[in-house]
Simulated scan of single mutants.
Amino acid sequence: MKIITGMRRSGKTVLMKQYMSLLRESGVPDSQILYLNFESKTLAHVTDYLKLLEEIDKKYNGKRTYVFLDEVQTVKHWERAVNSLQTDYDADIYITGSNAYLLSNDLSTYISGRYAELRILPLSFKEFMELHPGDRDKRFYQYIRMGSLPVINPDADEMFEHDHLIGLFNTILLKDVIRNCKGGDVGTLTDTVRFLYSNVGNITSANNIAVTIKKDPEKVRNYLDALQKAFLIYKAERYDIRGKRLLDTLEKYYVSDTGMRNAVLGISSREDISRQIENIVYLELLRRGYEVAVGKYGDREVDFTARRNREVQYIQVTMSIMTDDTYEREVAPFRLIRDSYPKTVLSMDSFVTDLPDGLHHSNLLDWLLEEERS
């Protein structure tokens, strides 16, 4: 079974339909392809797993059937239906869902070891440029300001797109966060989200957030977990480079889409662009398959330590290293790290050249648009 997860409107349904197109191109007839979108009112009556199996039985003819279940988390005990599909039917199963509750303990009881997860992120800058060709500097500031969701058009009326993002944000809070939290407290949830959005890339903790917004720490922890499962935020743990271990306390949070964040806070992309480009680099590293943490070496910080298989990279992100003070701040932590793994400074500087001591310096847009290396 293939499970496609990611934030709402990030492209899961499109990917699912691309799979369906490939099947048709390879000769699979429509009679053996079953697509059910549970956000459609035509399936409002399918509320539990028995009704779902009844719906599948209407089309199943005993032949190999490719079953596509879109936003299936709305169906109660849907995992039981999937277990029946795997046991009693000749079915190849594809599922999308907008929160990580899909992969809960209940699900693992039924399909443990029998699924592969594919996590979808909003558009990379390279994908954004393919969808919206144009001057890359102009497009990059649009990418920051209006975000990277495929449904957003950077050339459309900005207020219309702003309202679209606010509506989507509210839908995620209602359907993917509150619905999955017992005793929903909208005030605590809203204050927690606004704190996270305002403090992208700052070290914090659930207790620190609770103290700042004057809310119950346990509720804050629950909402942090739910917001991550709704793919609205991502947590980057701190990694002790010298001690080679993850630290138990303090972390950083990044957002899945800077456009949604800007819309919710009511700010322009240029008000805190350094935080936003750091956020963009974090997400890009995730897209490229890295496990990403915040590096710590003594009292110095490296923005990101990125690990993929045996590969390790250290990355600093800054607007510019053209002044002596900024150069020293960004490069100093690298001088302390004695291993031979690549160490890169990413900046918005137009003129770049490699730095002394084997350090690399790359223009951020060049790095975002380069061919990915596996």
Score class of each variant (00 low, 15 high):
Ala306Leu: 01
Val211Gln: 15
Arg329Gln: 14
Ala100Tyr: 08
Asn309Asp: 11
Gly259Val: 08
Gln18Tyr: 12
Ala44Thr: 05
Gly289Thr: 04
Arg329Ser: 01
Cys181Gly: 01
Lys229Ala: 09
Tyr239Asn: 03
Lys59Gln: 14
Leu283Ile: 01
Pro154Leu: 15
Met260Ala: 08
Tyr341Met: 03
Thr305Phe: 01
Ala226Asp: 09
Leu149Ile: 13
Leu232Ala: 10
Asp137Asn: 14
Tyr89Gln: 15
Thr212Asp: 14
Lys214Asn: 13
Val82Gly: 04
Leu346Gly: 01
Arg373Cys: 05
Leu118Met: 10
Pro356Lys: 06
Phe231Trp: 06
Leu227Ile: 02
Tyr314Val: 02
Lys17Asn: 05
Arg300Cys: 04
Ile172Pro: 02
Asn180Ala: 06
Gly201Met: 08
Glu55Ser: 15
Glu25Met: 09
Arg329Thr: 03
Gly295Val: 00
Glu301Thr: 06
Ile3Gly: 14
Leu346Phe: 04
Arg64Phe: 01
Leu69Glu: 09
Leu53Glu: 10
Ser31Pro: 01
Tyr89Met: 06
Asp216Ala: 03
Lys343Gly: 00
Tyr254Ile: 00
Asp349Leu: 06
Ala116Val: 08
Lys214Leu: 11
Asp248Ile: 03
Ala236Val: 02
Leu364Thr: 04
Ala210Ile: 03
Glu284Phe: 00
Lys252Pro: 00
Thr190Phe: 00
Asp299Gly: 02
Ser98Phe: 04
Asn202Gln: 12
Leu121Glu: 07
Met322Asp: 14
Ala100Glu: 05
Arg300Gly: 01
Leu369Val: 09
Ala156Gly: 09
Ser124Gly: 11
Ser21Val: 09
Asp185Cys: 07
Tyr110Phe: 10
Phe160Ala: 15
Glu39Met: 13
Leu189Asp: 00
Leu165Asp: 11
Lys182Phe: 03
Val200Tyr: 02
Thr249Val: 12
Met319Tyr: 12
Glu54Gly: 07
Ala236Lys: 06
Leu368Ala: 02
Lys59Gly: 07
Phe140Thr: 09
Lys12Ser: 08
Arg373Ile: 02
Ser320Leu: 11
Asp240Leu: 00
Leu247Cys: 01
Pro217Trp: 06
Gly6Phe: 12
Leu364Pro: 04
Asp57Arg: 15
Glu218Ile: 04
Asp163Lys: 12
Ala263Ile: 02
Leu53Met: 12
Leu336Lys: 13
Thr190Ala: 02
Lys41Trp: 10
Leu23Asn: 08
Ile4Met: 13
Gly259Arg: 13
Phe68Arg: 11
Gly358Glu: 03
Gly183Leu: 07
Val177Lys: 08
Asn105Asp: 12
Glu330Val: 00
Met260Glu: 11
Gln142Val: 00
Asp325Arg: 07
Leu246Ala: 11
Arg145Asn: 13
Glu284Gly: 00
Val193Leu: 00
Gln316Lys: 06
Leu123Pro: 01
Leu102His: 05
Tyr234Trp: 10
His360Gln: 14
Tyr49Ile: 10
Arg119Leu: 03
Lys244Leu: 10
Ile95Leu: 15
Thr249Ser: 15
Tyr60His: 12
Met129Val: 05
Leu247Ala: 03
Leu131Ala: 07
Ile315Asp: 03
His360Trp: 08
Thr65Glu: 15
